[in-house]
Write a protein that binds this DNA or RNA. Structure first.
Lengths: 164, 164
DNA sequence: ACCTGAACACCGTTCAAGT
DNA sequence: ACCTGAACACCGTTCAAGT
């Protein structure tokens, strides 16, 4: 639906037209545009299946996000997702972090770091960060590999953390 | 100006009203709303002064972003900044990364990781990621400290990296 | 150079009414 | 339950015209 024109093209009126219906007809099915987007975003997180390790879980999340690049800006605009699947994913992460010895607020903080990193990286995966004419736009290395490298840095740091 | 009503309230018409002027009068001074925002975003980066270490540079960036929380969503929407000050900051980071032994595309990738982390963290610093009723909303630890911890993880990872 | 009035092509959303 | 027509209060932007 929204894949054709990017996230900016996702307008209630355009969606209604695509469905061959009047714009306000949508409001019989959804409370508001915000609620609609929230449902879409949470539905995507449902695709993330439980993994065998924390690294694998975050990699799976990253993969799902990259598979729907036009949704990523919406996560940024909403600053995350708060639906039931987001909840489930969050709890899952806490469970894994416990295996690293992190509990309570420390685990919550580590989770925040991981989410920020994963979502942020997905956001910048498509678009270049700097417009340097002198440099090749897209760095040689695979972006997925770059994500993986940074993720390993974080997980190594988390697992070798000292009490602050 | 925009501090009163958040980033959504930054509309050309509202800005014009604040200036006591007709909405279209703004277009004598700025090409478009996009161009205006780009200028605002790049101006903020000018406040970041060169630091004594990479960690300090990123911390300074984080500090400046937190000082203007209503601008952070605009960076996310624009996916970074591309003005001259953003360029300068980007080059500065590359210089520091060279001291870690990273050059070329490896340095560019590490820079990407650091920017993603810093900007992403600033974005999520204000708003909570999960709406869990059972848990205290705001984790006990200082958010700046959390940022610092994660940043250290990344920098440790960068400096101890092996050729992949 | 800087402003205005008027207009265009959009938005999300509501309300009353129909089936 | 689901749709429609009409309307409201907004947007960014352009154009022609004024000083």
């Amino acid at each position: 639906v929204l894949a054709s024109g990017g996230p900016d093209a996702l307008t209630m009126r355009a969606l209604a037209q695509r469905l061959g219906v009047a714009p306000n007809a949508l409001y019989s099915h959804v409370d508001s545009k915000t609620a609609l987007i929230d449902e879409i975003l949470d539905d995507l997180l449902a695709e993330i299946e439980a993994a065998a390790a924390l690294h694998a879980l975050m990699a799976a999340t990253h993969r799902v996000l990259l598979a729907h690049p036009h949704l990523v800006p919406l996560y940024l605009a909403r600053q995350g997702a708060r639906g039931p699947h987001a909840q489930r994913l969050g709890e899952l992460m806490l469970t894994w972090l416990e295996q690293y010895g992190l509990t309570g607020s420390q685990a919550v903080e580590a989770r925040r770091v991981l989410i920020v990193y994963t979502l942020g990286f997905a956001a910048f995966a498509t678009r270049p960060l700097f417009q340097t004419d002198t440099q090749p736009q897209r760095p040689a290395g695979d972006l997925v590999a770059t994500f993986d490298t940074g993720l390993r840095w974080l997980l190594d740091g988390i697992s070798s953390r000292e009490p602050s």
